[in-house]
Simulated assay, not measured.
Amino acid sequence: MRNLLDDDKDHDHAHPEGLRADLPRLLLGRRAVLAGVVGSGAALALIGPRVLAQGVVTGAAADGAVCVAQPAEMAGPFPADGTNVRAGQVVNILTERGVIREDIRSSIGGLRPVAAGVPMRLDLRLVDVRRGCAPLEGHAVYLWQCDAAGVYSIYGAADRTYLRGVAISDSGGRVRMLTVVPGTYPGRWPHLHFEVFASAAAAVDGAAALLTGQFAMPEEACRVAYRADPAYAASRAALDGVRLDRDGIFRNGTAAERAAQMLRLTGDASGFVATGEVGLVV
Rank of each mutant, 00 (worst) to 15 (best):
R160H: 11
R174C: 08
V166P: 01
G150C: 12
R164N: 14
R176T: 13
D147C: 11
L163F: 04
R174L: 00
C146N: 15
C146I: 04
S153D: 10
D170A: 04
A157Q: 14
Y152V: 02
G172Q: 15
G172I: 05
Y152K: 03
R160E: 15
G183P: 10
V151I: 13
A148V: 09
G173C: 10
G165D: 12
Q145H: 11
T179A: 14
S153H: 03
Y142L: 12
V166S: 08
A149S: 15
V180D: 00
V175P: 08
D170S: 12
L143P: 00
T179Q: 02
G150F: 04
G156T: 05
T179F: 04
C146L: 08
A167P: 00
D159Q: 13
S153F: 01
S169Q: 06
T161L: 04
R160S: 14
G173H: 08
R160F: 11
G183E: 07
Y142K: 10
V151H: 03
G165S: 10
C146T: 10
V181Q: 02
L163I: 05
L163Q: 07
R164Y: 13
R176H: 06
V166M: 12
Y155K: 14
G183A: 13
R160A: 15
Y155P: 01
L163T: 04
C146Y: 03
R174Q: 12
T161Y: 05
D159L: 11
A149T: 10
G165M: 12
A167E: 10
S169C: 09
A158L: 10
A157F: 06
L178W: 03
I168Q: 06
R160D: 11
R176Y: 02
G156W: 03
V181A: 02
S169Y: 06
G156F: 02
D159R: 10
V175W: 05
C146H: 06
Y162F: 14
D147Y: 07
C146F: 00
R160G: 09
